[in-house]
Design a protein around this nucleic acid. Structure first.
Lengths: 223, 223
DNA sequence: GCCCGGCGTCAAGGATTCGTCAAGATCCCC
DNA sequence: GGGGATCTTGACGAATCCTTGACGCCGGGC
């Protein structure tokens, strides 16, 4: 069943959402604040997150950014504010949709279907395997000899960009702007440091076979 | 550049959108009705579609369904109606987002960014094949007997210029200015050195069959 | 047959870039 | 606040790449 994580401190709204969603065949997990939401998302990864911006413990955009640090689950944001600044902020933080209260439950359900449809399309190539290691893009995990390897958020993002473009040359600027942001296009130092860490964790032999460097241009992932 | 197809019969709004989008680095294609929109989407596939539901010739949801018949391009719907039925209908027809007029341009841009972020798509293959080797322009790669050949940045640029002009004569000045810059138009030495390296890496036989020199003029690539 | 310009070849040097390491700085959870 | 993990930053040899000059070959013109 499709699991939906609902993050809201409004007990009444939470109840209404739970009943409606369950009636439409979704599996509902609830969290009243940002911390418990992040915890719940980690312990049982949902297919979608419905997030109220007005949380008691932390800023909504902060929750989105933290979640995006290790998950690519679709996020639908709820808010009572009509101002567009909040919307822009939330969407740029990594949210996928934004709904202003009050809203119709049928609209919520329709947007939810649209988001799930999209993420289902993007799903297929979720598992990439090489002789040395296996990358699970959906679960954000890397396995090597059955053991799962611990990667830091930055290491993961970098590996993800490379793995999503198999055999393709990824430019240094492309990597830097996707992992650190467009403003870091000159910091090729970072690439060398993190590539070394990735290789130390993933490449069994001394000479890299899957994470190849193309001198002067960028890097390339070979399955 | 990112191409956006804007479908709207409101001339004023169209102008505003075109100016704003172009100012943010998007390439705008406009269509005033459903028929021309579908045609335009087919002829030059955009990275995203902004669709006004109130079209003169056909129902908005019908346009979405037709488009979805052969394309998975993200669709952002605009509408003046506040009723939720239209939203549900459009979203379930295959739209990805829905914005009610009047809306803020910064919110539109933010939603647009969120949609484009989601659709990380693959580019066309762009393969050029000869008897001896295969050039993959998209992945920036050269294959020979299944093995991939390692080229330096300069070698690659030179090969790329030649391969993008198959069977055509590329003059020395053209090559030099595209690879090294216009200031190097006299350094024909470079061409000889790098052409020799390319041939050693790509041509199986002693006499070149694909990288031909036209004495006194330039070089030519034969597939 | 001789001269000469354009081309292919080679190798050395100098310039860039890369891998590596380790020491701060920063963030985050307890 | 304290401690651990993570992220920056700088420096250094090592590897790679680019530039440069010299040399021989070939073909056309005289």
């Amino acid at each position: 069943m499709t699991a939906v994580l609902v993050v809201d401190d409004d007990t009444y709204l939470l109840r209404a959402l739970r009943i409606t969603l369950q009636a439409h065949g979704y599996d509902v997990v609830a969290a009243p604040d940002g911390r418990s939401a992040l915890l719940a998302a980690q312990q049982q990864p949902p297919a979608l997150v419905i997030l109220d911006l007005g949380l008691p413990d932390m800023d909504g955009s902060a929750v989105i950014r933290k979640l995006r640090g290790w998950s690519s689950v679709p996020i639908l944001v709820l808010s009572a504010r009509h101002g567009s600044e909040d919307k822009v902020q939330a969407l740029d933080a990594g949210a996928d949709d934004y709904l202003t209260k009050p809203f119709g439950l049928d609209e919520l359900l329709a947007r939810l279907r649209a988001l799930l449809r999209r993420s289902a399309e993007a799903e297929p190539p979720a598992l990439i395997t090489t002789e040395a290691f296996t990358v699970d893009l959906g679960k954000r995990r890397v396995l090597r000899d059955g053991q799962d390897i611990r990667l830091t958020p930055t290491e993961w993002k970098m590996l993800e960009v490379l793995v999503r473009n198999p055999e393709k040359l990824v430019t240094q600027q492309q990597l830097l702007s996707e992992v650190w942001g467009p403003a870091y296009a000159k910091e090729t130092n970072y690439l060398r440091v993190y590539m070394a860490q990735l290789r130390r964790k993933l490449e069994p032999e001394a000479t890299p076979r899957h994470l190849i460097t193309e001198a002067g241009i960028g890097y390339r992932f070979l399955p």
